[in-house]
Design a protein around this nucleic acid. Structure first.
Length: 805
RNA sequence: GCCGAAGUGGCGGAAUGGCAGACGCGGCAGACUCAAAAUCUGUUGGCCUUAAACCGUGCGGGUUCAAGUCCCGCCUUCGGCACCA
C-alpha cells in the first residue's frame, strides 16, 4: 500500500457530517417491519453557556449503542429535542431586554451546531421543542386530562416570599433563608397553589419499579422519595370535648408509653379551641417565630427543640384513659401525617430530646437500652403495656395493637408517604400557560380542548409582578376572557407550569412529532414504546423520572398509551469533573469547552476519550493529556492503512485475538463498559503493529468495531478500503467461540497459593488429567522438590496450585 | 441520622473467588534527526546496586488451597434524602 496522507479530522469530520445529513442517514424508518430500538437521552436545556464536556458523555454512550443497533439490523429511534422553558433563559431575557423566545432560538441553534459537530446520530427530523406551541398544546392537553380526571386541585401552602423584592422565590433561590437577589430575609407566606395528585399514584409507581430494569441505586432513590410507611391512625379525645385529635404512628404498640402529644404550630384545632387555651398569647408568639423560620432553620438546626405547652387544653390516652398534656413544636410538620403526634419519649429520639428539655415523664414499654441516656429504638420484650406485655416481636406487637385499636373504634391501620403532591405552578412568564379560567359563577373551568394551544401573550416586561404574581397578570387582554361554560366575564389563570411539565412526556412526542390530531398516533406508540434504553444523569433519577412515570401511568390508565411504564431500562452516567477533581462550574473556572477540545484533537478522539476515561457510571476528572492519548490511538489506527497486505480472512497469528476482541467489544458495549471495550481495541492495534502487517479482513473488522465510538474516521477508512456503501449500515461483526481457543495456554504455578512459576500446557487439558499429570512436570517438580504434596488444584486456563507441607 | 456508591501505582483506571496493576496518561532509556517535535522500540508498584526473597488493593479480624473480590467490625470520601412520627 502506498503511504497515505496524515489523519486529518478537520477534513474528515465535516465531510461525513454533511453526507449523513444529506442522505438522512439516521432518520428512523417509517415502516414497522423491522424490530425496533428506541434509545433515549435526556433532552438538554439549551442554556446560554452552550455544552460543556459533561453533556456529551450521555449522548456518546447512547450514540454508540444506537449505532451498534443499526448495524445489528434494528430500526432505531434516537431522537433529540429541547427542554427550553425555564428560569435561566427568563432571567437572561429580563437582564438583557430580549424576548425569551429569541434567546431560546439562539441557544438551540448554538446547541444543535455543537451536537452536530460531535457527530451524534440523532434523528433531527423529529426534533421537539417544549416552547413550541405545537408541542405545548399537548402538554396543556394532558394537563386538562389530569384536570378532567380530578388529578388537579388547589390548596393553600406556605411559599418563600421576599418582602423587599415582592417576589415568590423557589427553595433554590432562598437558600439559608436569604433572598438570592437582595439578601434580605425571606418570610413564609400562605398562597394558593395548583397541585397534581401524584400521591394517588404512589403505590402504582412503587409497583411499577418491579417490572423495569433500573439499577439498584436508582430504584432505591425512587422508593426513598416515595417514602411509604405503614402504621396506624389513632384518635385521642380532647379532654372535656367531643372532638378528637388524630395522630399517625408507625408504632401503635407503644401507645402505653405516650406521655405527651405534640401538634404542629399551624394545626387548625388550635384556632378552634383558642378560647380554652389559657396561654394563647404565648402560642401566637411562638407561631409567629416559627413562621419566620425558613425551611433551612427548621430542618438543619435539629439539635435544639423549641415549643410550649398548651395550658387549659389536654387530651386523653384512648387506651388508658390517662390525661396527656399537649405541646406545640415545629419538629412536627403540618405536611406529613396528620400534623400531630403521640410522643413516646422512651422510644423515639426526638420525643426523648423534647421530654428532656421540658421535664416530661418517660415511660419505657420495650425492654432494652438505657433510656436515661437516649431513646431505645431497638427490639425487645413489651412491658408496662397491659395486653401487649410479653410480646417479643415488633411485627406481632404492632399487629396486636392495631387489632385492639380497631376493635375499640379509636383508630385504624393506615399508610403514609413522604412524597407530597406536586406543586404545579410558577409565577413566571417563560412556561406553559395553565389552561384554566376562574369564573365568578362557575368556579374553575377548563379551557376547551379546541382552544389549545393557549399561547403566551406578547409582553414587554418579563419581571415577576407585585405580590408574587406572574407577569401574565398584568396583561388585561390575556386575563379577561369569557367563561367557557356560561359565557360571562371571567379571568384566566395567570400562573404557568413548572419546567418539569414539558419533560414529563417528550419521549411520547418523539414517536410521532408532527401529528396535529393527537400527541402521538396509537399505532406509532404501539410500535415504538416503551423506550428500550434511557440514559441520563443521576440528578434526574428522582423527580424527573418519577414525574414522567406518573404522567405516563396516568395516560395508560385513561387509555392514551399502551404501556404502563415508559422506560424499560434506565442507566445513568457519572459526572465529568474539572481537571482539579471538582464539579465543573463557571465560578471555579474549571469548565472545559468541547469546541476547543474538538478543535485540537477532533470529534472522534473527543468521543473516544469521553468513553475511555473511566467507568461510565463513575465521576471522573477531565485530563487533557488523557484526551490526547486517544488522538494518538486514532492516529495509530489510521496508519494501519499503510500496513494492509493481501490475503483472505484473518492471519493465523491474529485470528484468536480478532475473535476475542469482537466478543469483548460486543459484550462490553452492552454493559456500558466502554472503557474496557476501547482498551481491547487498543490492545488489538498494538498487536497489529507488533505483527508488522494487517490483512484487509482484520482491518475491516477493527473499523466496524470502532465505528460506533469514532464514526467519522471509520467511515473514511471504510471508503478507502474500497466500499461504496457507508459503514453505518454494515452488519456488526460476529465471533466464533471455537476460534477463541488457542492450542496451548500459559498457566501460573502456585505453591501454597503463591505464584512460583509458569508453564505451557495444552489448552484442552481436563481437570482430572491435569491434577494427575502436572505434578510430574519437571518445571513443577523443581518448585515442589523435597516437600510433600497435600493437594493439587487446577483451574483450566488459569493456574495450578500445589499445596505442600 | 437514613439510603446508595466508592476507597487499588506518580495519575485515570483493569481484574466470572484463581497470575493484582489490563489499557491509557506521565516518567526513564534507546532508534530516527544537525536538532527538536512527531513516530517507533524497550522499560516503569515498593524495598534493593542487581538477583532472589520480602512487602503491597482504606484499617482490624475471619472464611478459603487461593481474597481487591466473600463474611464480621470500623475509618474516610462522594451522591441523594433528612425533625417523615
Amino acid at each position: 500500500m502506498p503511504p497515505i496522507a496524515p489523519y486529518n479530522p478537520k477534513a474528515i469530520e465535516p465531510k461525513w457530517q454533511k453526507i449523513w445529513e444529506e442522505t438522512h442517514a439516521f432518520e428512523a424508518e417509517a415502516s414497522h417491519e423491522k424490530p425496533k430500538f428506541y434509545g433515549l437521552i435526556e433532552f438538554p436545556y439549551p442554556s446560554g453557556a452552550g455544552l460543556h464536556v459533561g453533556h456529551p458523555r450521555s449522548n456518546t454512550a447512547m450514540d454508540i449503542i444506537a449505532r451498534k443497533r443499526r448495524m445489528q439490523g434494528y430500526n432505531v429511534l434516537f431522537p433529540i429535542g429541547w427542554d427550553a422553558f425555564g428560569l435561566p433563559t427568563e432571567n437572561f431575557a429580563i437582564k438583557n431586554h430580549i424576548h425569551p423566545a429569541i434567546v431560546t432560538r439562539q441557544n438551540i441553534d448554538h446547541f444543535r451546531r455543537q451536537l452536530k459537530m460531535i457527530g451524534f446520530s440523532f434523528d433531527y427530523s423529529r426534533e421537539v421543542d417544549t416552547t413550541d406551541p405545537n408541542y405545548f398544546k399537548w402538554t396543556q392537553w394532558i394537563f386538562l386530562k389530569l384536570f378532567e380526571h380530578g388529578m388537579v386541585f388547589r390548596d393553600k401552602t406556605l411559599v418563600n416570599y421576599c418582602p423587599f423584592c415582592k417576589v415568590v422565590l423557589s427553595n433554590e433561590d432562598s437558600q439559608g433563608g436569604k433572598c438570592d437577589i437582595c439578601h434580605n430575609e425571606v418570610v413564609q407566606l400562605p398562597k394558593d397553589v395548583w397541585y397534581l395528585r401524584i400521591t394517588r399514584y404512589a403505590d402504582k409507581l412503587l409497583e411499577g419499579l418491579k417490572t423495569v430494569d433500573y439499577p439498584e441505586n436508582i430504584a432505591q432513590q425512587q422508593i426513598n422519595w416515595i417514602g411509604k410507611s405503614t402504621g396506624a391512625f389513632v384518635r385521642f379525645p380532647i379532654r372535656g370535648e367531643e372532638e378528637t385529635i388524630e395522630i399517625y404512628t408507625t408504632r401503635p404498640d407503644t401507645l402505653f408509653g405516650v406521655t405527651f402529644m405534640v401538634m404542629a404550630p399551624e394545626h387548625p384545632l388550635i384556632d378552634k379551641y383558642a378560647g380554652r387555651i389559657a396561654n394563647m398569647g404565648a402560642v401566637e408568639a411562638y407561631r409567629e417565630e416559627c413562621a419566620k423560620k425558613t425551611e433551612f432553620e427548621r430542618t438543619q438546626l435539629v439539635k435544639d427543640k423549641t415549643g410550649l405547652k398548651l395550658e387549659g387544653l389536654s387530651a386523653v390516652n384512648p387506651l388508658t384513659g390517662k390525661e396527656v398534656p399537649i405541646y406545640l413544636s415545629d419538629y412536627v410538620m403540618m405536611g406529613y401525617g396528620t400534623g400531630a403526634i403521640m410522643a413516646v419519649p422512651a422510644h423515639d429520639q426526638r420525643d426523648w430530646e423534647f421530654a428532656h428539655k421540658f421535664g416530661i415523664e418517660i415511660i419505657q414499654v420495650i425492654e432494652g437500652g438505657d433510656i436515661s441516656k437516649e431513646a431505645y429504638t431497638g427490639d425487645g420484650v413489651m412491658i408496662n403495656s397491659d395486653f401487649l406485655n410479653g410480646l417479643t416481636n415488633k411485627k406481632d406487637s404492632i399487629a396486636r395493637a392495631v387489632e385492639e385499636v380497631e376493635k375499640r373504634g379509636i383508630g385504624r391501620a393506615g399508610v403514609q408517604y413522604k412524597m407530597k403532591d406536586w406543586a404545579f405552578n410558577r409565577q413566571r412568564y417563560w412556561g406553559e400557560p395553565i389552561p384554566l379560567v376562574h369564573c365568578p359563577k362557575c368556579g374553575v373551568v377548563a379551557v376547551p380542548y379546541d382552544q389549545l394551544p393557549l399561547r403566551l401573550p406578547q409582553v414587554q416586561d418579563f419581571e415577576p409582578g407585585q405580590d408574587g404574581k406572574s407577569p401574565l397578570a398584568r396583561i388585561p387582554e390575556f386575563v379577561h376572557c369569557a367563561c367557557p361554560k356560561c359565557g360571562g366575564p371571567a379571568e384566566r389563570e395567570t400562573d404557568t407550569m413548572p419546567q418539569w411539565a414539558g419533560s414529563s412526556w417528550y419521549f411520547l412526542r418523539y414517536c410521532d412529532p408532527h401529528n396535529d390530531k393527537a400527541f402521538a398516533d396509537m399505532e406509532e406508540l404501539k410500535y415504538w414504546m416503551p423506550v428500550d434504553w434511557y440514559n441520563g444523569g443521576m440528578e434526574h433519577v428522582t423527580r424527573h423520572l418519577l414525574y414522567s412515570r406518573f404522567w405516563h401511568r396516568f395516560l395508560y390508565d385513561i387509555g392514551e398509551v399502551n404501556t404502563p411504564e415508559p422506560y424499560a431500562k434506565r442507566t445513568a452516567q457519572g459526572m465529568i469533573l474539572g481537571t482539579d477533581g471538582e464539579k465543573m462550574s463557571k465560578s471555579r473556572g474549571n469548565v472545559v469547552n468541547p469546541d476547543e477540545v474538538i478543535d485540537e484533537i477532533g470529534a472522534d478522539a473527543f468521543r473516544c476519550y469521553e468513553m475511555f476515561m473511566g467507568a461510565f457510571d463513575q465521576a471522573i476528572p477531565w485530563s487533557t493529556n488523557g484526551a490526547k492519548g486517544c488522538r494518538k490511538f486514532l492516529d495509530r489506527v489510521w496508519r494501519l492503512q499503510e500496513m494492509v497486505v493481501d490475503g483472505e480472512g484473518y492471519s493465523e497469528k491474529l485470528n484468536s485475538l480478532m475473535h476475542q476482541t469482537v466478543k469483548k467489544v460486543s459484550e462490553d458495549i452492552e454493559r456500558m463498559k466502554f472503557n474496557t471495550a476501547i482498551a481491547a481495541m487498543m490492545t488489538l492495534v498494538n498487536e497489529m503493529y507488533a505483527a508488522g502487517q494487517v490483512t484487509r479482513a482484520e482491518l475491516e473488522t477493527l473499523v466496524k468495531l470502532l465505528s460506533p465510538v469514532a464514526p467519522h474516521i471509520c467511515e473514511e477508512m471504510w471508503q478507502n478500503l474500497g466500499h461504496a456503501e457507508p459503514i453505518h449500515h454494515q452488519p456488526w461483526p460476529a465471533w466464533d467461540e471455537e476460534a477463541l481457543k488457542a492450542d496451548e495456554v500459559e498457566i501460573a504455578v502456585q505453591v501454597n497459593g503463591k505464584v512460583r512459576g509458569r508453564i505451557m500446557i495444552p489448552a484442552d487439558l481436563t481437570r482430572e488429567t491435569a491434577e494427575q499429570t502436572l505434578p510430574d512436570n519437571p518445571d513443577v517438580q523443581r518448585l515442589t522438590a523435597g516437600k510433600t504434596i497435600v493437594k493439587v488444584i487446577f483451574v483450566p486456563g488459569r493456574l495450578l496450585n500445589i499445596v505442600v507441607k
